[in-house]
Amino acid sequence: MEEIEPPNYGGSPPVRLCAKVRRADSILKPVEDLEYAGLLRRLPSCPRRDSVYYLDRRCVRKSASGDLSETKRVIQFLESEESALVSRGSLLLRMELPSDPEMLCVVRNALGELAAKLGFSEAECRAVVLAVDEAMTNIIRHAYLGEAERPIEASFRRIHVARDGKSKDALEIVLEDRGVTVNPEKLCGRALEDVRPGGLGLHFIRQSMDTVEFSRRWGRNQLRLVKFLAVQEGPRKGT
């Protein structure tokens, strides 16, 4: 099998995204997820198929003809997704929890401390905590239908995202569950003028976070939340 050596931009681990570049609105599905650039400098290529590699927020496209070049079109393609799969920052915290409402306070306390350490203001910390609490509440109630012993995975990363022509630090939170498929149409919340109990959770999440993305991958619901740091805190650590 032919091998290629991707350019070493350092930083985030490379992710080989897909064997074929598809329409810009299609969902990216990684065929391989390589842990560390330093360990896998040489990647097997797929003959006669285009491959896209993502390295440290830059994209390299290897065409079927063997040409290895940066492709702006692909970069735009990836930025439109702003996917967790490509925004691999430094992992700060990872939790595996049962879907027990009693665990919500554990997550809130840990996340509140984490957000404060990252430099978020007190109000931003409260907003992030509220969003994650509401998201986990939705998982427990809607994805697991109230079952208390199902798994919820939560990962918290510091990421670096290009936004408005600038590179910004942000906290990325990914929540995963193996519950029933959530109908995205039901994730629209409700009109606030309609005074009745319930339906506020998604509104709180959207008001509190800069990015809210829901997806279903490999039998799992994944919710990705991003909150940008208002002020840069100096050089990134751990990448």
Binding site: R108, V129, L130, D133, E134, T137, V195, R196, P197, G198, L200, G201, F204
Partner: peptide
């Protein structure tokens, strides 16, 4: 110390 949407929903139910 903290209230979420389920807490607000309880208050709304009480109000109703």
């Amino acid at each position: 110390r903290y209230i979420d949407s389920s807490g607000v929903a309880s208050l709304v139910e009480g109000l109703k």
